[in-house]
Design a protein around this nucleic acid. Structure first.
Lengths: 347, 347
DNA sequence: TCAATATACTGAAACGTTACAGATTGCCAA
DNA sequence: TTGGCAATCTGTAACGTTTCAGTATATTGA
C-alpha cells in the first residue's frame, strides 16, 4: 500500500478548500484559537491574531457556510419574496439590483422566493421561518393589515416591507410617497387648466392604494378640481382591460380632461384607450404617470412624468433588513422616498 | 433542581423543529434507519418505511439544509448570475419567474449572484465554484468563446447558458433563434416593399450578435435587398445614443426604409430618432422589432413585432441545469426557441 | 514564598445529516 | 445441529464551525 493520503494530520493536497483545521495545522495552533483569531476575539494575542489573519488571507480561506449555519443557525441569507404573477415588469430587476448593491460587500446571499397568485401569500413566509432558511426577509405588495408582517413580528425574524402597514406595529420599511405623488400630479394637471380628473389606482387592498387615493382627493380639493370616478380597473388589470375601460370612460359625456396613472405600463394602455376614443393626448386630456425606467417620454412626449426609483427601494430595503439583523431599532429603519429623488428618513 | 429539560433522550418540546433524532425517538428506531427509510433505501422493511414516512409527514419533518450540505456537499441551490448594469428591463424578472416555476416542486432554492460591469465576468463564477455555493449555474450574455463556460466545464459544475457558445464544447443551453428572427424580419420588410434595410444589432461580442447579423445578411440576399450599415450603436447603448445615431442615419441621403431591431427598449429610441429626423414610421420606414412583453403595439401600431419569451427561457434553462445535475447528458439538454413560440429540441 | 489572578491558548462536544462497517434475527440447506 | 445467508436494523464517525470548560504559564500582591 502506497503513501496513505488520509493521514490524520492535515496534509490537504493544496487543491482542497482550506478549513480551520488547515489553518490550525499551518500556524501550529488549535482550531479554536484560529477561529477566535479570525473574528478578533479579545483573548487572542495581538501577534497571533495578525499571524492567523495573514495566513488566512494568503491561502484564501473562506468559512464554510454550511458549517457556520449548522453550528450557529446563521444563514447569511436574505430572501426576497415575490409574487410571480402580479409584479410588474422591470420593477423586479431593479429591486434585485438595488438589494445586490448593498449586500455585495457583506457575506449575505440573496435568494428569491416566489409564490403564485393561487397560494396564500403567507405560505412562503411560513416556509422561510419554519425552515430557518433566511436571516432576513423582504416583502412587497404590503397591505394595511398585513398578515405576513404580523407573522414575522410574532416569530421574531427581521424583515422589511416595500410599502407601509397600518397595524400600529413598528417595523422597517421603505416606501415611495404616493400621497405626495398624487398631490404633485394633480397640481400639475391643474396647472395645465385641467379640472375634471380621474385616477388609475394601484391595486386595491395594498397600502399605497390608500395613500394614492387620499393624496388625489386632498389635492383635488386644494386646487378645486373634481373627480371623475374610474374605479373599474387598477394597474393590476391587464393591458387590454385598462385600454377598453379607458376608451369607454373617454367616450362618456362627462369624461376627464386629466388622468393620474400609477404605473408606466398602464399608461400605455390609457393612452391607447384615449386614442381609441378618438381623442388626443395633450389636447383633450393630459396624463401624469409614474415610471421606473426612463422610457415614457419616448412613447408620447406630451406625457407628464414622475419617476419612482426601484433600485433605490431595493437598496433601502436591504439596508433596513441588515440593520435590523445587526441589532438596530426597527423604528429607525424606515425611509420614505419622495417624488424628485429626495430620500427622507423618519425623524 | 426541577425537571431537567436537557435530557439526553429527545424530549423536544414540540416547538423545536423536528430532526432525524426526533423521528428516531418517536418511531423507536435508530437515526440511520430513519434517514434511509425517508429516502426509500432498499434495505428498509416496507412497513417500517411507510411508518417512518407517515410520522415524518405528520409532524412536518423537513431535512435541515445545513446538515445535508455539510455532510454531502449538496447545496440544493441554483445560482443565476446576472450583470447588474447591462441586463435589460423585464428580461430579468421573466427569467427569474421562469426558473422559479421549474424549481418550485424541487428542493432547490434560487440565488441571484450579481456582478457589475467593472468586474471580470468570471469572478462570480469562480466564487461560486470555489466556495461550492451552488449545485448548478445559469449564465447569460454568452459569448462564442466564453471563458465562464470553459471554466465551469473544467471544474465539472453543471450549468446552462442563455445563448450558445462556439467552442466545440458540449453543454446545455437555451437560445432564441435569432438567425430565424432576422430572416423573418427581413422577409416581412421585403414583403412591404422595403429594399434598403438596417439592423440594430445585439451587443457586439455576444454570440447572438453573430446569429442576428448572419440571419440578416442571408435574408438580404434571399430577398435581394441591400444593407444600410448601422453599426455605431447596439441595443446595449443608451436610449439617448441610439436615438441620436438613428436621427443622424435617417437624415442621410442613403437612409434605410426598413430597420430590424433586436430589443423593445431600443425600438422606442429608434422611433424617436426617426421622428426627430422628420420621418414617419410606416410611411417612410418600417421597423420589425423583438419584444418580450406585449406592449410595443401600444407604442406605435405600425410596428412589426416578433415575440421572445424570456419566461420560457428561464424555465428551459432551469430544466437544463437540473437535468445535468440529475445525470442527463449535457448534449441532450439544448433547446432552441424559434420565433412564433415553437420550441425545438436538438435532434 | 504562596496563592490569586490574568493572559493565551486548547480539546471536546455539539449542530443534523449520511456513509461505513457492523450487529441481530430468522430461515434454510446440508 | 450447524453454518451460511439474506433481511433489517444500528452505532460511530465525519463534514466545518463555534462554544464550553477547561489548562498552562506568567504576573501580581502580600
Amino acid at each position: 500500500m502506497d503513501r496513505q493520503r488520509t493521514e490524520k494530520n492535515d496534509e490537504r493536497s493544496a487543491r482542497e478548500r482550506p478549513t480551520l483545521k488547515t489553518l490550525a495545522f499551518m500556524t501550529g495552533l488549535g482550531v479554536t484559537t484560529v477561529s477566535r483569531a479570525l473574528k478578533d476575539a479579545p483573548e487572542i494575542g495581538a501577534e497571533t491574531r495578525r499571524r492567523v489573519q495573514l495566513v488566512a488571507k494568503q491561502i484564501g480561506y473562506r468559512p464554510n457556510r454550511a458549517g457556520v449555519r449548522l453550528r450557529t443557525g446563521k444563514t447569511n441569507v436574505i430572501s426576497l419574496v415575490l409574487n410571480t404573477e402580479q409584479e410588474i415588469m422591470s420593477f423586479v430587476s431593479d429591486i434585485i439590483y438595488g438589494v445586490s448593491e448593498v449586500i455585495a460587500d457583506t457575506p449575505y446571499h440573496l435568494i428569491v422566493t416566489p409564490y403564485s397568485r393561487s397560494q396564500d401569500p403567507l405560505d412562503p413566509i411560513r416556509y422561510l421561518v419554519e425552515t430557518g432558511s433566511a436571516d432576513g426577509i423582504i416583502i412587497s405588495r404590503t397591505q394595511p393589515n398585513d398578515a405576513r408582517a404580523r407573522y414575522m413580528l410574532e416569530h421574531g425574524i427581521p424583515f422589511a416591507t416595500h410599502g407601509r402597514t397600518e397595524m400600529g406595529l413598528v417595523h422597517p420599511y421603505h416606501d415611495f410617497d404616493n400621497h405626495a405623488f398624487a398631490v404633485e400630479a394633480v397640481r400639475r394637471l391643474a396647472g395645465k387648466g385641467r379640472r375634471k380628473l380621474a385616477l388609475l389606482t394601484p391595486p386595491v387592498g395594498l397600502t399605497y392604494h390608500g395613500h394614492t387615493v387620499n393624496g388625489f382627493a386632498d389635492a383635488l380639493s386644494e386646487v378645486g378640481a373634481s373627480e371623475i370616478p374610474f374605479s373599474t380597473v387598477s394597474i393590476d388589470h391587464s393591458i387590454e382591460q385598462i385600454r377598453t375601460r379607458t376608451a369607454q370612460l373617454m367616450r362618456r359625456e362627462n369624461r376627464p380632461d386629466g388622468i393620474v396613472s400609477s404605473a408606466a405600463a398602464a399608461t400605455l394602455a390609457l393612452v391607447a384607450g384615449i386614442e381609441d376614443a378618438g381623442l388626443k393626448l395633450g389636447r383633450d386630456v393630459d396624463i401624469v404617470s409614474k415610471q421606473s425606467s426612463d422610457l415614457l417620454h419616448l412613447f408620447r412626449p406630451e406625457l407628464l412624468i414622475v419617476n419612482e426609483n426601484f433600485r433605490l427601494a431595493g437598496s433601502e430595503l436591504a439596508r433596513a433588513v441588515l440593520g435590523w439583523i445587526g441589532g438596530a431599532a426597527p423604528g429607525l429603519l424606515q425611509s420614505l422616498s419622495v417624488p424628485g429623488e429626495v430620500l427622507a428618513y423618519r425623524r
